[in-house]
Design a protein around this nucleic acid. Structure first.
Lengths: 203, 203
DNA sequence: CAACAAAAAAGACACTGTCAAGATTGATTA
DNA sequence: TAATCAATCTTGACAGTGTCTTTTTTGTTG
């Protein structure tokens, strides 16, 4: 009956997830700059220091948001890599395009996920690392496969880890230059990705 | 005689360059987080609002610092590309290695130069753009040359702009992943760069 | 020398993250 | 059921921050 967001109970009930949800929404809508603990608390209908019972500090909250992003990214890569209806070459192309598209469609989230803020030596939460590392590792696995199938243009002695670091670097770099506003021509994203695919494929 | 940094004159004399110098030092030493206008003003020996007569706001100051970085980067690329004692292949390899090395040796400056903060639509100063764009353009020129000499692995129809965006994306991405703390094994930087070179060269 | 404009200072405001101390609640145990 | 306790939430407070407005000082110029 009364689902007006006016705070009525002293104990919120599920503040932790509420904080994550609303913070994510704020992030998507107005960017990381507009995400402050005080505004967040206000919007959730709770006092400014209530969040501190669920997150050690602001950084821990940000790590929590990023976790969700890495789950998405991991799932996306896994799904496309395991689709039976596509050739290896198509899958490789899909990886490049999808990765950049993910960043372009969730610029604020992507910025957070790979921003130095949460990856500074003592900042990354254990929970975050346990979600992000498998995501990183999966990209190495994909590269290993592509390498075995002689899809990529490089010499024999190159190991999969290095190659995947280069591939990842490429998509990450393109994504970053796009969403940070240095590549200003958003309209040619597909062309850039196509070019990247072309430059990496063995002929 | 008295070169103690105690403020003695009302008018500083050359506050603008002093601010840039000290701010750059603060940036290198302790990172962007530690650069605040108030601390900066304090260290220069001036009131907290004095800087506003030389920079519209904090963002304008940061743009000023970044300018110097782009001058360096431009010069570095130009010098190595014009060295007569090296083969084209060596120059290409040098470009990749040098670029990443530049970022790794000046992490805070690089982060500022390519951070979204100063490149947000209305944030970049005209002066910054006039220094940065030629720097970007030069990378296209280099790529055009490499393309003409059939150094790179890609098909005929690829244009130099797209190829240079991919190349730049690669070095930028590798650099970012390194200095943001996502690639934690700094010791293999050279190997990653070598691998990148190998993957891009035509065979 | 007087007038003016540039440069610097001081006051003030609305933010921010975070901590300490107290209030309220739901759950557990006696 | 009643008392205890820990989790949760609130309020007050502090030291920061960027930036605006008003006032003071200075160098320059007519």
């Amino acid at each position: 009956m009364t689902n007006i967001p006016i705070k009525v109970k002293y104990h919120h009930g599920d503040l932790r997830t509420s904080l994550l949800e609303v913070a994510s929404k704020m992030l998507n809508e107005s960017g990381i700059e507009e995400v402050s603990l005080r505004k967040l608390a206000n919007r959730v209908g709770v006092s400014r220091s209530a969040p501190y019972h669920h997150f050690k500090d602001k950084n821990a909250l940000l790590c929590g948001i990023a976790e969700e992003g890495f789950k998405q990214l991991y799932l996306m890569n896994k799904n496309s890599f395991n689709s039976d209806s596509k050739s290896t070459k198509e899958k490789f192309s899909l990886f490049i395009h999808q990765y950049v598209k993910f960043a372009k469609s969730n610029p604020e989230l992507y910025e957070l996920m790979f921003g130095r803020a949460i990856w500074k030596p003592q900042n990354s939460t254990k929970a975050l690392r346990e979600i992000a590392y498998p995501c990183f590792q999966y990209q190495v696995e994909m590269t290993k496969k592509w390498q075995k199938l002689k899809l990529l243009n490089h010499s024999e002695e190159d190991n999969a880890l290095r190659a995947s670091q280069v591939l990842w670097g490429t998509v990450h770099g393109i994504a970053k230059l796009l969403i940070d506003g240095i590549y200003t021509d958003d309209s040619h994203v597909e062309e850039i990705c196509d070019c990247a695919v072309d430059m990496f494929l063995a002929r």
